[in-house]
Simulated assay, not measured.
Amino acid sequence: MAWLILIGSGILEAVWAAALSASQGFRRRRPTALFFAALALSMTGLAWAMTSLPTGTAYAVWVGVGATLTVLWAVWTRQERATWSRMALLAVLVGSIVGLKAVS
């Protein structure tokens, strides 16, 4: 169960990162509200997962999931370009997350 909560918290990390960007420095109300809600839920889930998973592993997975999804969202919304090297590096990052799960 801790792994599912951790992955969900990583997804929420990507949500709050995208909402932070969309808030334009906290000047837009809805993205700002989404940022704070997703941030609180993401941190709560990470904290809960860390009660049964090693801290370093949990944090690395949380950051990796969030970073990967944030980049994919930026590519999807055309804020960033999808280059072969960028996608290959994201694949390595995802492989590393899977590897951390496999050895934990």
Rank of each mutant, 00 (worst) to 15 (best):
M1C: 08
A2D: 02
A2N: 06
A2H: 06
L6E: 03
I7D: 09
G10T: 01
I11H: 09
E13C: 13
E13T: 02
A17T: 01
L20C: 10
S21G: 12
S21Q: 12
Q24L: 15
G25L: 12
G25I: 04
F26A: 15
F26S: 11
R27K: 15
R27M: 14
R27T: 08
R28N: 12
R29N: 07
P31Y: 01
P31S: 03
P31W: 01
A33I: 11
L34R: 07
A38Y: 06
L39M: 14
L41S: 04
S42W: 07
T44D: 05
G45N: 01
A47H: 07
A47V: 07
S52Q: 06
T55K: 13
G56H: 01
A58W: 03
A58V: 00
W62A: 05
V63A: 09
V65K: 09
G66P: 12
G66H: 02
T68A: 14
L69E: 00
A74E: 02
W76L: 13
T77R: 13
T77K: 13
R78Q: 10
R78I: 00
R78A: 11
Q79H: 07
Q79D: 05
E80T: 00
E80M: 12
R81E: 03
R86M: 14
L89R: 08
L89S: 10
L89W: 11
A91G: 12
V92M: 14
V92Y: 11
G95F: 11
G95V: 02
S96V: 05
S96W: 12
I97R: 07
V103N: 02
S104N: 09
